[in-house]
Computed example of a mutant assay.
Amino acid sequence: MKNIIIASTSTLHGGDYLEYLLPELKNHFKECKTVLFIPYSRPSGITHEEYTAKVSQAFAKIDIDVKGIHEYIDAGIAIKNAEGIFTGGGNTFLLVYQLYKNELITTLAETVKNGTPYLGTSAGSNICGLSMQNTNDMPIIYPPSFQTLGLIPFNINAHYLDPDTQSKHMGETRETRIKEFHAFNTIPVLGLREGSWLEVKGEKTFLRGTLTARLFKQNQTAIELESGSDLSGLK
């Protein structure tokens, strides 16, 4: 049975890394002594070791150890044997590139679908959908495919921002970009605002957190979803 948290972000303004999610994570990973961390999304400024150390500090607050996937000789076996898995934020193009390069896409998807608890934030959430095509990241590297884990039957736009009516910026809004996606694609897109996340238990998916989310479907008006909304039938 799938057991997944798909969060828009790792850090809220004024809070520490993962702080707002720790009560949820304590329950989510309650059977885990150690969580496997996938740090593939960071292109610069922080090494895999440094990123893993940052995650370790957060998980130490709920008495869970963290091991980086880069510490293992065989990453595929590390995923299959993991008690729990966390994929952090960064650049989604790089993350997907690395997962394909290391031949981990299928292994990761199957392991999570079989019930291993999974947490994704930002880029780690973007890969939970059918494709990564609704990421906000720059295409700094080209993955062999945009197809991702398919843990949910729609796509995620993490860090979703509403148009600022007071701004003089004339560039495209997130809503405009998602509508452009829907000019060529039928996959629904959920805009996850900061502080919101999805809880996936088996075939049930619910919106959680302090904020609403915005749901986009091809040729339909976008709608607001309140925390607690059931997205189980969305496809």
Rank of each mutant, 00 (worst) to 15 (best):
P117K: 09
L215G: 05
I73T: 14
I62P: 01
V35P: 00
A213K: 00
I4Q: 02
E224P: 04
A60C: 09
L211T: 12
T52G: 11
G129V: 01
A78C: 07
N81K: 14
K113I: 04
T221N: 15
F206V: 11
W197P: 01
Q147W: 12
G15E: 15
P143S: 12
A82N: 08
F86G: 01
K201D: 14
G171D: 13
V96M: 14
L104S: 02
G76A: 08
T173D: 09
I69M: 11
H169E: 13
W197K: 03
K80N: 04
I223T: 13
A75S: 12
L231K: 02
L225E: 03
F93D: 00
G84A: 10
L99E: 04
A213F: 08
L234T: 02
I62R: 05
E199W: 10
E103Y: 11
D74V: 06
L94Q: 09
P143Y: 09
G124A: 07
K201T: 10
A75L: 09
M170D: 11
F29K: 05
A7V: 00
G150C: 09
K235Q: 15
V200K: 01
T165E: 13
I64A: 04
V200R: 00
Y17T: 01
E103F: 11
S44P: 06
V189I: 05
Q220T: 14
Q57F: 11
Y72A: 10
K168G: 10
D74E: 12
T135I: 03
L234I: 11
E224N: 12
Y51S: 13
T210L: 10
S145R: 10
V55Y: 03
L99K: 02
A82D: 06
V112E: 05
I64V: 15
S229K: 04
H48C: 14
F154T: 03
D164L: 05
F37I: 08
M132E: 04
S232W: 08
Q133D: 14
V112K: 06
A183I: 11
V112N: 04
G150V: 08
H182Q: 09
I64F: 09
G228I: 06
D65H: 13
